[in-house]
Each structure stands twice: as structure tokens, then as C-alpha cells.
Simulated scan of single mutants.
Amino acid sequence: MRPYTLAVDLDNTLADYTGALRRFARAGYGADLPCPDPAAYDFDLADGWPWSGTGLTFWDVHSAAVARGLYEDMDPMPGARDALMALDRMGVRVLAATSRTDDGDASREWLDRHAMPVAALLHGDKTAVDADLWVDDDPRLLARLAAAGRTALHPAHAYCAGAPGIVFRDWAEAPGIVARLRGL
């Protein structure tokens, strides 16, 4: 019998993508930029960032940031490592799952540097991952998982507040949620 498996997204789920992008944007485009937390998953819709009202797009800024080490510069989300360690002690197999296509070895190096206890790193279609539970922040993916009868947790970010799944406000909640789902 295979172990209970959890697939965990990286950007804005396990790692603070917004915080790293905010630091890059302020350093490169103006220290006075507000760079607020996005209200929509599509960063192009966010005001107060370098692409707001300029000829730039989110992807222009994202690509420049990745070229300058964005993925390496991300901090772990508060409590994420401790929660993954607790899940690992519970016998949960944790997989990191990302749809990034521009990271080279950056994801693996980030996971190793922050001692994230993950069994494997997977790139591509997250719905193809053989998991019992997903943790993600993409409202479209959460809707696809729900439509397929799969269970997901998601952080309480404004842009995924109305998405299907179980909301957690702090990573410290995740092991208890998983234990309840497993009937432990």
C-alpha cells in the first residue's frame, strides 16, 4: 500500500513568491512602490507594481527577476518547514509540485537549502500527480481538483478565498487538518 501523499505547490504556498518579487520590484523600479498583496491570481491585474500603468507586463518583470535569482531569494512561508516535518513524522509522503518551466535547478536547490522534507520535486501538470491531497493557491487548479473529486487545501490569500477546498490561515494548521482528513 502506498503512503498517504500530499502534493505541495511552491510559489505563494510553500515559498513567499510575492515577498521576493516585491523586494526585486522595489530595488529595481522604485523603493516607493506599494507592491500590495495581489487581490487576483493574475498578477497583471495588480495595481501598485512596476507594470501598473506602464508598458511593462508582469511577465517582463517576472522574467527579469528570475534572471536575477528570484527563485533563490524567496523565503519559506512562516511555519511551512515545521508543518512539513510534522506531516513527515505522521507518515505523509510530501511531494513538491510546481508548474514552473523557467527554474532550472532553482526549485531543488531552494528546497534543499531550506531543508524542506520532500520526497520528490515534480514539474508540470499538478493534476497528473498521484496524490491524496493537494496544497495550492491557484483558484483554477483548485476548481479542477474539486471537479475531479479531489481534496485540496489552500492558503487564505485574498485571490483564492472563494476557491473550493479547505482554507488554512497558518501552516501550523496543516498537520491537524491532514490528521482529521485521514481519520487519525
Rank of each mutant, 00 (worst) to 15 (best):
P76K: 00
G79K: 01
G69F: 06
D60E: 09
A65P: 04
A128V: 08
L95K: 03
L141M: 10
H62C: 13
A80S: 10
P139W: 02
A147F: 03
E72L: 04
A115R: 11
L141N: 09
G124N: 09
L141H: 02
L56A: 14
M77H: 05
F58Q: 15
A86H: 02
V66C: 12
P78N: 13
R140A: 15
E109I: 02
P117Y: 03
R108T: 14
L133K: 04
D88V: 06
G124C: 06
M90D: 15
K126R: 08
L142G: 04
R93D: 12
L121H: 08
W134M: 15
A128M: 11
M85H: 11
T98F: 06
A120L: 06
D75C: 07
G104K: 05
R81E: 14
M116P: 07
D132E: 09
H123S: 14
L95T: 07
L56I: 09
D125K: 02
M77F: 11
V61A: 11
A143M: 08
A128Y: 01
S107F: 01
D82L: 10
D73C: 03
D82C: 02
G124P: 07
T127D: 14
G69R: 03
T98A: 13
A67W: 01
D60A: 04
K126G: 15
D137V: 03
M85Y: 03
A64F: 01
H123W: 00
A65G: 10
Y71Q: 13
L141P: 05
F58R: 14
R113V: 12
D75F: 02
A106K: 01
D138Q: 03
P139K: 08
L122Y: 03
V94H: 03
D130Y: 01
L141S: 02
D132A: 11
V129G: 13
M116Y: 04
D60R: 01
S99H: 11
D112S: 11
D103S: 09
R144I: 07
M85Q: 14
L56N: 10
G104E: 09
R93Y: 12
D102I: 02
E109Y: 00
A131M: 06
D125C: 09
D103I: 05
M74L: 14
T98V: 07
D60N: 13
A80M: 03
S99C: 10
A146I: 09
D88K: 05
A119K: 09
R81A: 15
L122E: 15
P117R: 04
P117H: 02
T127M: 14
D82I: 00
A128C: 00
M90W: 06
M74N: 05
V66D: 12
T101I: 03
W110S: 12
G104T: 05
T57N: 08
H114A: 14
V94P: 08
A83H: 05
A64M: 04
L122Q: 14
L56Q: 12
S99D: 14
R81L: 03
D105V: 07
H114D: 10
A147S: 13
L87G: 10
M90A: 15
R68G: 08
G91E: 07
T98I: 11
L142K: 07
D82N: 07
Y71D: 15
A96P: 08
A97C: 14
S63K: 00
G104D: 12
T57P: 11
R108P: 03
D112G: 03
H114L: 06
P76F: 00
R140W: 12
M77L: 13
W59M: 15
H62P: 10
W59Y: 10
E109F: 05
D130E: 12
